[in-house]
């Protein structure tokens, strides 16, 4: 063998061994501290996946996380409640989280907060799936299957422990020194909205004729069917909006509406609800309700569930 090839081979091997050592060592330390977190977003995701038990589970994005006051639901419906809404996440992540949770526990009712634009094509929605990387080792088949939708050869970088915990260290440090309060997953927002900006995303969606992502459609259907297969009652809710949104032009929402109808799942649409429209005092920012708004909205959702006796009857029947 050529001398140069030999040197390269030996040094490459040495380098690889050192790299693997550093990766495994630092990766293991990070993993330990990652799962030792006692507050913050990743803690809530871990807790939802591994430990949370409740009669009602709330799923969705930051709208779910910020708008559904668990105390109100517990008081109004007389059942325990956990808010598994995840800030910044969208349908694919929510569907995966639901699958993982239902493998472990069977709540009586799932309240799925849907964002009207969920089914539109969005590269960001796939990119955000990276937040599942730290949990890959716990559930490689299920999570790997989802992650592959974004990156075909994702198993290769996931061999690295450091990659699995990419960009998590700041969270770990931040929430170690500044713990973040939550009430069974629910995190209320304070303050009153003083911004006149209409949510940029909704303006864009109204203006552009966006395409529907078939994978998102499939995922949405699977989410509903998965709940039914696990004999869990599921309802869908859209959160209130500060500004009026033309949902008739929103093909994503229309598609979700028709899927919900076909799957016989109730939809409570609070988008454009006049009790919340242009009521700055109920919002913390143009996209999110504040604590007052969240309490009011949660009450309305709980009342609607109570009023629609079918839902609670189903919940009782399914749990028998």
């Amino acid at each position: 063998m050529n001398k140069s090839y030999k040197i390269t081979l030996i040094k490459s091997l040495k380098f690889l061994i050192i790299l693997i050592l550093i990766d495994q060592l630092l990766g293991t330390v990070t993993r330990i501290y990652f799962f030792k977190q006692q507050s913050g977003k990743y803690y809530r995701i871990s807790y939802s996946m591994d430990s949370a038990k409740a009669d009602i589970f709330i799923f969705g994005s930051s709208h779910a996380n910020r708008h559904y006051d668990v105390d109100v639901f517990e008081k109004e419906l007389g059942m325990t409640c956990y808010n598994a809404g995840v800030q910044g996440q969208e349908l694919l992540f929510v569907a995966t989280l639901q699958k993982i949770i239902l493998q472990r526990t069977k709540p009586k009712l799932i309240i799925l907060n849907i964002d009207p634009e969920w089914l539109y094509e969005s590269a960001g929605s796939y990119d955000k799936l990276g937040e599942l990387n730290p949990y890959y080792f716990k559930n490689p088949d299920l999570i790997g299957q989802v992650l592959k939708k974004n990156k075909r050869f994702i198993e290769i970088p996931l061999l690295s422990k450091l990659y699995q915990y990419n960009s998590t260290i700041a969270h770990i440090v931040k929430y170690f020194f500044f713990p973040q309060d939550d009430n069974k997953g629910f995190r209320s927002l304070t303050g009153v909205n003083d911004s006149n900006f209409k949510n940029q995303k909704s303006i864009e969606l109204e203006e552009k004729n966006q395409k529907i992502d078939t994978l998102f459609v499939r995922s949405f259907k699977e989410l509903l069917i998965n709940a039914k297969n696990n004999k869990v009652e599921i309802i869908a809710v859209t959160s209130p909006s500060l500004f009026g949104v033309n949902l008739n032009r929103n093909f994503s929402f229309k598609e979700m509406e028709s899927i919900l109808l076909k799957q016989n799942v109730s939809l409570f649409n609070f988008c454009n609800d006049e009790r919340f429209l242009n009521h700055n005092e109920l919002y913390s920012d143009p996209g999110h309700l504040n604590i007052k708004g969240a309490a009011l909205f949660s009450k309305f959702v709980a009342d609607t569930i109570n009023r629609k006796s079918g839902i609670l009857q189903n919940v009782i029947c399914l749990t028998k």
Binding site: L19, I22, D23, L26, T30, L162, Y163, N166, S167, I169
Partner: peptide, 15 residues
């Protein structure tokens, strides 16, 4: 250099 690769894996933006 192994440390540099580790920094990329740990702090890099892959999307």
């Amino acid at each position: 250099y192994a440390g540099l690769i580790a920094v990329i894996l740990f702090f890099g933006v892959f999307d």
